Amino acid sequence: MNKVFLFTLFIVLITIFTTGCWNYREIEKLGLVSGMAIDKGSSGKGYEMTAEVIDISASTREPRFNSIRMQSYGESIFECVRNMINISAKPPYWSHATTMIISKDVAKEGIIPILDWIVRDAEPRLTLYLLISKTPTAKEILSLQSLSTEIRSFEIENMVTSNKRLSQAPNILASELTNDISNKGISAIIPTVDMVYNEGKQTMALSGGAILNKDKLAGFIGLEDVKYYLFVRNKIEGGLLTIDITNSTTLDNVTLEIFKNKTKVTPIVSNGKLSMHIKIKTEAAIGESDTPINILREPNIQHIKHTAEEFLKNNILKLINSMQKDFGLDIFGFGSIVKKKDPKLWKEIDDNWGEIFKDLDVEIDVNVHIRGSGHLSKIIKMH
């Protein structure tokens, strides 16, 4: 009986002292930050932080979610965070933040201080999405008209995650970006956002990728080039390929919808020289065609297949050559692949990888399988 009593008491005590959270705070007393923008300080020194804070306005029927913006200044990111307390009755709570927009000027000087705060502090998520703004300041993005929700940061997060269907924006979390910056064998790319007009109103849109040299902004690539970058990185999850199909009489467009893709990159050493072999296998269907022929008949389908393979191969090679000649930055992670598959070789070349990459030979094999064209095999005609 005593044993049963002691066991019961033990369970009760465990329940009492292990429930709850060590840093529990009542949510209505906090300012829930959905995202933030980082700009240079007005004097050219330090930082200006703009936080988007969720404003929950109660009504008789249901709560309405809006957002307000607060700004603070500091010599460091952490100082900006702490100074935000001085201007808000509700202390900012950063664990719900999903996106951070960084200005071009800040990115050119380096984003290590920003990543250091994210990784070191207990509140920010390591799953934050970081983006570079092409507008003069990052805070402008948070002030632009939102099309789908009043919470700008949540809309940007949805734009990044939903872009998998287009494969025109890199999808990289703060934790992954930290690893890439720390790795000699790869130069990171993060998504960019810019101002656009929609029905005469200013709003925001994803605009491609920002290339980093270590942690500093080195340049930009557009939406289409991001797609070819993702092909090499084996990160294609969808998207479209619009190609020109030439026959005896016309030049027409065929748009392929990508359903599956598998890319394998293999380092090859021959006669003491390193090269990379890229093998791409893509499964697609014909989504749209302007071609006035039966596109599924032989040899038409083979002609489309061959054209698509050459189109994809040439555009990937063009991007690789641009990275080698214009930037000298390995955004494809070829060095990381060598490090993983041949550690001994990597130890010999890692200090000179930047120069080796510039002259690296790359061979690409592309195999596009076209599995159908929906309900139609010919273009719709008007009589």
Score class of each variant (00 low, 15 high):
158 N>P: 04
118 I>S: 01
170 P>N: 13
116 D>E: 10
108 K>Y: 13
146 S>W: 09
114 I>P: 00
85 I>N: 14
145 Q>Y: 13
111 I>N: 10
38 I>C: 09
174 A>L: 06
39 D>A: 10
62 E>V: 04
77 I>R: 01
131 L>F: 04
90 K>V: 05
72 S>N: 00
55 D>Q: 07
114 I>Y: 05
141 I>V: 10
86 N>P: 00
111 I>V: 14
131 L>M: 13
45 K>I: 03
92 P>D: 14
171 N>L: 10
56 I>P: 09
134 K>C: 07
129 Y>W: 08
115 L>T: 02
54 I>E: 06
78 F>S: 09
123 E>R: 04
132 I>S: 03
55 D>M: 10
179 N>M: 04
61 R>E: 08
50 T>S: 14
89 A>V: 13
155 E>P: 10
39 D>G: 03
154 F>A: 09
116 D>S: 02
87 I>K: 06
101 I>F: 15
155 E>N: 07
97 A>L: 11
150 E>Q: 11
95 S>H: 13
44 G>N: 01
45 K>M: 01
105 D>P: 04
165 R>M: 06
55 D>T: 05
178 T>C: 05
46 G>T: 00
169 A>S: 15
56 I>T: 14
133 S>L: 11
123 E>P: 00
106 V>D: 11
173 L>W: 12
171 N>H: 11
130 L>P: 05
66 N>M: 09
145 Q>T: 13
43 S>D: 15
134 K>T: 12
162 S>K: 10
59 S>K: 12
142 L>D: 02
93 Y>K: 11
78 F>Q: 10
144 L>F: 15
118 I>K: 01
78 F>K: 04
159 M>Q: 10
148 S>W: 02
101 I>H: 08
128 L>I: 05
98 T>G: 12
65 F>W: 06
97 A>R: 09
74 G>A: 01
65 F>S: 07
164 K>C: 02
89 A>S: 14
122 A>Q: 08
111 I>M: 07
179 N>L: 14
148 S>L: 12
110 G>F: 06
129 Y>A: 01
91 P>S: 13
124 P>T: 03
37 A>W: 02
179 N>H: 11
117 W>I: 03
101 I>A: 13
162 S>L: 10
114 I>S: 03
147 L>A: 13
179 N>K: 15
164 K>L: 08
39 D>V: 15
133 S>W: 06
135 T>G: 09
42 S>E: 15
165 R>N: 10
44 G>Y: 04
152 R>I: 12
172 I>G: 03
107 A>C: 13
76 S>T: 15
164 K>D: 13
124 P>A: 04
160 V>Y: 05
